[in-house]
Design a protein around this nucleic acid. Structure first.
Lengths: 331, 331
DNA sequence: CTGAAAGCGCTTACAG
DNA sequence: CTGAAAGCGCTTACAG
C-alpha cells in the first residue's frame, strides 16, 4: 500500500505538509492542499490505521460487545450502528461474548484491552459485577443498550411502561384472565429488563383490580415461549390472553396454541414486544421498539462520547403499540 | 494502559527482552522469562494493537464483509467465525455492505484499505466486477463464503447437488407437479447460487422425465416466498409441491398456502434450503447446510491463509436432507 | 542470553 | 505556509 511518504514526494512537499493537507488540520495554501490531494488520489493513498492510531491515540473504531445468539435484535441494532458509523469513517470491531468462561475472561481481560477501539457499545448482555468493573476500568466511554445492567444502560426503553402498555391493551379489549411469559424472576428486586416488564404487567393488573392468570418463566427464545405457553394453556383455568416479553416468545406461544387446537385470537390473544421482522407474518400485536433506531442512537452516543460533532441522543428510547390480528376481545 | 516499558522496568530487563519474553520468540533464560511474565501479569499488561501491528505488519484481526440484512445466515456464520478466531486471539472487524453506492464505494476504496485486517471473509455478498477487483487489489487473502461470485468462493456447497437433492426428495414421494421458487434468472449462464440450485431442479426433473410445474422469481425473503407462492398456487394447474431455494422463501410459501386454505403437506408439500432456526417450528423439510460450521471453516481458511498453524478446510461444504412434516406423498 | 538501536507510518508541537 | 524532528509503543535484526 502507498505510504504518506510517497504522496509527499509526488506532491513535492514534506510528509508533515502532506499529512496536514489530507487531514485538514493546520493551515496551508490552497494550492499545496490541492496538489497533495491530487497526488493522494492518483496513488490511491489511504492512511494506515495502525500508524495513525499510534500517533494520535485514536483508533476510529467502535467496539460492539454482543452475545451473537440474539440474532434478530442484534442484527437490527448492528445495522443501525453501522449506518451511523460509516459516514464518519468509523469501523466496527465485533466482540462476541459467549458463555464459555475462559473465552469470556480472555475477552474482558485481553481483547478489549488491546486499545483497538475508542468506545464500546454493549448490546443486550448480562454481565457479572467483575466484568462490569473490567469494562469500566478500560477508561473508555461505555454505551449500554438493552443491557439488563441498569448502571450501564446509557440508553433505555422504559420497560415498566412497556409491560404496562401491553397489559393495558389486553385489559382494554376486555380480557380478565391474562398471563405473562418472560425471563423474569418476579421475586427479584433487580432492575433487569424482564423483571421491569413483569413489574409493568403486575402494576397494570393491580390498577385494574384484576388478578394475574399466571406467569411462566422462559428465556427469550421461541422454544421457551412454546414450552411456557403449553404449560399455561393446559391449566384448568386457562388464560384468554398472554403477554409475552418478546416477539419470539410470542411466536412460540402461537405455535403452542395452534398445537392445542386453540385459535389466535379467537381462543387466545397474544401480544409480544419488539417489532420482530416476522411479527407481520404472524399477525402479531406487539410493542415495537425500533431496534434499528436504537442502534443509531447507540452509535450517536458513542460518537458524541469520543468527541465527534454529533448530538448525543436522549437516553429514553421510544416504543409504540402496534395492533395486529393476534389480539381481540375475549369470546 | 500499561506499556511494555513499565513491564520491562519492573522486571529489570530491557524492553526488547520483555517483548521476547511475552511473545515467546527468541531464546532467553527461563528465569527472566518468568520474571517478565510475572511483571506483566501484575501490571495487567496487554500489548497495544496499533503498536504491534505497525511493528510487525500483522493486525491479528480478520475482516468480515456482510450485508447485514441477511440476518439469520449471517449471525450463524459470524458466530462460527468468532468461535474459531477467539482462541487464537484474533479480532473481527465488521464491514457492512449496504446498497448505498456512496457508502459502498467508501467501503471498498477506503475502509478496507486502511490495513486494519490480515484477511477478509466475504459473506453471501453480490458484488460488481469492479468491487471484486478492488478486493483482490487489497493483496490480502480473501475467503468467499456463500458468495454468488464463483471466482471468490473459496468454500462452497455444491448448489446444483442441493437443488437436485431437494427435487429428488419430492419426486421420490411421488410428486409430478413440482414448482420452484428462488432468486434465479434461469436463462442466465452464470454460476451464482440461485442459478445453480435452479439448475439442479431442472436436471433432476429431466432425469425423471417430469415436466416443471413452474418457476416464480423471488428474492431470499419471506415476503418474496409469500408472493411467489401465491402466484404459483393460483394457477389453474397448480403444483402439488414447491422447492424453495431457501427456508425463508419456504416459510413465505407456507403462509401463502395457509391463506389460500391449502394445508401443508396434505395439499402442498414444501421443501426449503438452509436449516433455519425456525424450520423446526414450521416442521419444514429442508436441506440443512450448517452455517455455523461454515463460519468455522471460513475462519480456518482465513487463519491458514495468514500463516497460522491451522489446517485449511476442504473447499466443499457438506449439506444434508432433513425430512420433516412439510413434505408427504401427493394425495 | 540480553541490550541498544533502528524502524514500522503516521501526527504534531516547534521553528522559521 | 512549510519543514525537520520527535514521538506514539511495539518488534527485530545486529552486536556482544
Amino acid at each position: 500500500m502507498t505510504s504518506l511518504e510517497e504522496v509527499a514526494r509526488r506532491a513535492e512537499v514534506s510528509a508533515a505538509t502532506a499529512s496536514r493537507a489530507l487531514s485538514g488540520r493546520g493551515r496551508l495554501s490552497d494550492a499545496t492542499r490541492a496538489r497533495v490531494q491530487r497526488a493522494a488520489a492518483d496513488l490511491g493513498y489511504v492512511a494506515s490505521a495502525a500508524a495513525s492510531s499510534l500517533a494520535t491515540g485514536r483508533t476510529r473504531s467502535i467496539g460492539v460487545l454482543v452475545p451473537l445468539v440474539d440474532q434478530w435484535f442484534f442484527a437490527q441494532v448492528l445495522d443501525g450502528i453501522a449506518t451511523r458509523l460509516a459516514p464518519l469513517g468509523y469501523d466496527i470491531t465485533l466482540y462476541n461474548a459467549t458463555d464459555d468462561p475462559a473465552q469470556r475472561r480472555h475477552l474482558f481481560r485481553t481483547s478489549l484491552r488491546r486499545g483497538r477501539v475508542d468506545a464500546v457499545i454493549v448490546l443486550s448482555l448480562a454481565m457479572s459485577a467483575e466484568e462490569t468493573d473490567e469494562l469500566r476500568a478500560l477508561g473508555l466511554p461505555i454505551i449500554g443498550l438493552g443491557t439488563p445492567i441498569l448502571e450501564l444502560a446509557t440508553l433505555r426503553v422504559d420497560d415498566v411502561a412497556v409491560g404496562r402498555a401491553a397489559t393495558e391493551h389486553l385489559l382494554g379489549l376486555g380480557h380478565r384472565r391474562i398471563a405473562h411469559i418472560g425471563p423474569a424472576y418476579p421475586r427479584d428486586a433487580g432492575g433487569d429488563i424482564p423483571t421491569l416488564r413483569h413489574r409493568g404487567f403486575v402494576a397494570a393488573l393491580a390498577d385494574a383490580g384484576v388478578e394475574s392468570a399466571g406467569f411462566a418463566r422462559a428465556d427469550f427464545t421461541i422454544e421457551g415461549g412454546h414450552r411456557a405457553a403449553h404449560e399455561l394453556l393446559s391449566r384448568s383455568e386457562r388464560p384468554t390472553a398472554i403477554f409475552a416479553a418478546s416477539d419470539e416468545l410470542a411466536f412460540g406461544a402461537v405455535f403452542a396454541a395452534r398445537e392445542l387446537g386453540q385459535e389466535v385470537p379467537r381462543d387466545l390473544s397474544v401480544i409480544g414486544v419488539d417489532g420482530h421482522d416476522l411479527s407481520g407474518f404472524f399477525a402479531l400485536t406487539t410493542i415495537e421498539q425500533f431496534p434499528h433506531a436504537q442502534g443509531m442512537a447507540a452509535a450517536d452516543a458513542a460518537l458524541a462520547a469520543v468527541g465527534e460533532d454529533v448530538t448525543a441522543p436522549a437516553p429514553a428510547l421510544p416504543f409504540e403499540l402496534v395492533v395486529r390480528a393476534s389480539t381481540a376481545p375475549p369470546t
